[in-house]
Amino acid sequence: MNMVLLTQNVSRRFKDIEALKGVSLDVAAGEKVALLGHNGAGKTTLFRVILGFLRADDGHVCINGQPPGSRLARRDVSYLPEAVAFPKMLTGREIVSFYAKLKNADADEVGSALEKVDLAEAADRRCGGYSKGMRQRLGLAQAIVGNPKLMLLDEPTSGLDPISRQRFYELIGEIAGRGTAVLLSSHGLSELELKTDRVAILRKGEVVANGSLAELQRSANLPIRIRVRSNSDHVESVHSRLGGERVNGESVEFDCPRPDKMDRLSVISQLGKAVSDVDISSPSLDEVYRYFSSDDADRGDAT
C-alpha cells in the first residue's frame, strides 16, 4: 500500500510528562483513520509532531517521503486545529481564499470548497456572525483546498449536532475517495459513527489498539450480555440453572464470554417452557473504547 503518513516509534516528552511513547501509526492514501483518546492522551501532540511544529525526541516521521515541516511536506498536508478563531472582520470566502493562495491552489477551488461544506450562501458574510457549526465547516473548507495528500483534523466533530456530523463524515468519505489520506482525532468511539476504516486508540501517549472496529471488538473480547425472559413461576429455577441477576421478578441477566455463547444458549433452550424470550447484546462501541482507554485492566496490544 502507498503509505502517505509513516510514523515510527515517535516519542515526545514535556518535562515530566511523556506525551508520546513510541507511537507508530501509518495512514495509506485514501484511508480514513480515527485517532482516539481521552483528553491529554497525546492526540494533538502527535499532530503537531507530524506538522513539524514540535520535534520528536525520538522516532521517525515521514509525509509522502518528506520530513515533517519541510516545504514539500507542507505542500501535501492540510490541517484543521482543535480550536481556531478566524478574524471576525473577514468573510468566509476571504478566509478560504487566503489559505488557498498560501497553498498555491487554484482560485476556483475556493468556491467549490465553500459549496462542499454548505457555506456557499454565507460565504460573503463576515465570519464573526457564523455559528459554531459554520465555523467548523469553514475550517474544513480551508483544509480541503489545495488537494492535500494528507488531511489532519483535530477533533473536527466535537460540538457538531448529529446531522452536521453525519454530513461531515460524508464529506470526509468523498475526500478520502479521491485518494487523500485522512487522520482525524476524536475523544469518543461513538462519535465516529462507524465511518472510518481504522481506529487507533492512544492511552497516555501509547497506541494501545490499532485496527478496524470489528478487529477491535474481537480483540477486546468483552463478554456479551444475555437476558432471559421467564415468568414469576419459573424465574427461581431459571436463575438457579443460569446464575446472574434477577430483574423485575421475571427475567434473568448474565454476562457470557464470547466462546461460551453457544453452550449457554443450548442450556437455555433445554429450559423449555420456562423461557419465553432471549435477548443477546454485544458490547457497545463505548464499552469497547472504555476497555482500551481506561487505566486499570491489563491487556495486550490489539494490532
Partner: peptide, 14 residues
C-alpha cells in the same frame, strides 16, 4: 492565541 498561526504555518509559506 487564536490558533490561526498553526494554520498559516501548515501551508508552504516560510
Amino acid at each position: 492565541d487564536r490558533g490561526t498561526l498553526q494554520l498559516t504555518l501548515a501551508t508552504p509559506v516560510s
